[in-house]
C-alpha cells in the first residue's frame, strides 16, 4: 500500500488569553480514539501568546504539539489565526482536523477550510470512523430536529465539535510527546484592528451547574429576584427564555436556547417557560429537569423529570423556604 498523503488527527487547541479552553481536552479525548482506530498519530496545534503551559496538551494525549508563539494571539483576530493555521495544516497534512464549535472556532474554521479548499461539517455531536477509514460526522441540523451523517470527500476532513459533547481526555503526567515551536507569520497590513475589549461582568451561564430559568410566566423584571434567590441557594445562576430577553428584563448573556446559550447543567429548573423547540434546543441535555408551569399541557412537561403544575409565585417560594429550613438544621 502506498503511503497516505494525509495522516494523523489534528486538534486545534483553543485558548483565551493563554488559558487553554476545556473543549481542547475533550477534542483530544475523542481525537485519541479516532487516531487509535486509524493507527495514526494525534497532533495538537496551538496559536497563542508566550509561555502557555502546553505540556498539558501532551498529558492529555497529544503525541506532538505545534506551538506558534506570538503575543498577537492574545486577541481574537481571526484573520491572523487563519493565515497561520492554514500554513501549518498544509505542512502537517493531517487526514482529520477538529476545532471546537465555540464562537471563535465557528468563525475561524470556515475561513480555514475554504482557504484549504476542503469541506467543513459544523457543530458535530459525534464522530466515528467507518470501514474504509473515513470520518463519519454526525451533527444536528434543522434547528436541532434531525441528525445528519456526513462524509467529506476532500482532505483534511474538517469538523467543528460542540463543547461538552465528549469527555475530557484523562490527564497523565507521565506521558511524553514532542513539542515543535514555530514563529508566527504576522502580516504588516491588517484589515481588522481590535480597538478595545469591553469589560463585561464575566457571566458564563454555560459553566453553571444549576440554572434556574424564567420565562414569560415572570410578570415584572423585579420578580427575577425570586429566581435569583433560589439560584443562590442552589449555588447556581439564573437563566431566561428569549421572551424575557426581548422584553428587556435581562441581558442576552442569560438567554438559553437556539439563539442564546446551550447549557448542560446538573439541574435545570424552568419556571413559567412553555418549552418551545428553540428553548428546548438549549437545555434538553441537562441532567435533571424540573418544570413549574400553570398549564398542564405545556410541552416543557414532556422533557421534565419532575413537573409541577402550579403557579411559580407559589412554588418557587416553597422551594426557597424548604431549602432555608434545611440549611438552618444542617
Amino acid at each position: 500500500m502506498t503511503e497516505k498523503a494525509h495522516k494523523g488527527v489534528l486538534v486545534y487547541a483553543e485558548h483565551n488569553k493563554g488559558i487553554i479552553h476545556k473543549v481542547s481536552y475533550e477534542l483530544l479525548g475523542k481525537g485519541r480514539e479516532l487516531a487509535e482506530k486509524l493507527g495514526a498519530p494525534l497532533y495538537a496545534i496551538i496559536l497563542g501568546p508566550k509561555d502557555i503551559d502546553i505540556k498539558e496538551l501532551i498529558y492529555r494525549g497529544a503525541d506532538k504539539v505545534f506551538y506558534i508563539e506570538d503575543d498577537v494571539f492574545n486577541k481574537p483576530e481571526e484573520m491572523l489565526y487563519k493565515i497561520n493555521l492554514v500554513e501549518a495544516i498544509k505542512d502537517i497534512k493531517p487526514e482529520i482536523c477538529l476545532i471546537g464549535a465555540t464562537t471563535f472556532g465557528r468563525s475561524l474554521a470556515p475561513r480555514v477550510a475554504s482557504a484549504l479548499g476542503t469541506g467543513l461539517t459544523a457543530d458535530c455531536t459525534e464522530l466515528e470512523i467507518d470501514d474504509s477509514d473515513k470520518l463519519i460526522q454526525i451533527r444536528p441540523a434543522f434547528s436541532d430536529n434531525i441528525l445528519a451523517h456526513i462524509h467529506t470527500v476532500t482532505y483534511p476532513q474538517m469538523a467543528t465539535i460542540r463543547y461538552k459533547e465528549f469527555f475530557e481526555a484523562k490527564r497523565d503526567i507521565n506521558r511524553e510527546g514532542e513539542i515543535v515551536k514555530k514563529q508566527g507569520i504576522i502580516p504588516e497590513t491588517r484589515l481588522v484592528e481590535i480597538l478595545e475589549e469591553i469589560k463585561g461582568d464575566g457571566i458564563d451561564i454555560t459553566e453553571a451547574e444549576v440554572v434556574v430559568a424564567g420565562g414569560r410566566g415572570i410578570k415584572t423584571p423585579e420578580d427575577l429576584k425570586l429566581l435569583k434567590e433560589l439560584a443562590d441557594l442552589l449555588g447556581g445562576m439564573i437563566g431566561a427564555s428569549r421572551d424575557l430577553v426581548d422584553q428587556g428584563y435581562i441581558s442576552s448573556d442569560y438567554q438559553v436556547g437556539y439563539s442564546g446559550h446551550r447549557v448542560k447543567p446538573k439541574l435545570y429548573i424552568a419556571c413559567g417557560i412553555s418549552g418551545a423547540p428553540q428553548h428546548l434546543a438549549g437545555m434538553r441535555d441537562s441532567e435533571l429537569i424540573i418544570a413549574i408551569n400553570t398549564d398542564p399541557s405545556a410541552p416543557i412537561f414532556n422533557i421534565a423529570d419532575y413537573g409541577i403544575v402550579g403557579d411559580l409565585y407559589e412554588v418557587v417560594p416553597m422551594f426557597i423556604e424548604k431549602l432555608k429550613r434545611q440549611e438552618s438544621i444542617a
Binding site: 483565551n16 486577541k75 481574537p76 483576530e77 465555540t102 464562537t103 471563535f104 468563525s107 484589515l191 481588522v192 484592528e193 481590535i194 480597538l195 478595545e196 475589549e197 469591553i198 463585561g200 464575566g202 458564563d204
Partner: peptide, 12 residues
C-alpha cells in the same frame, strides 16, 4: 460578541 467577551473591531 466572541470568545466570551465583547470586542470593538475596526474593519477596512
Amino acid at each position: 460578541n466572541i470568545c466570551g467577551g465583547r470586542y470593538i473591531k475596526r474593519v477596512k
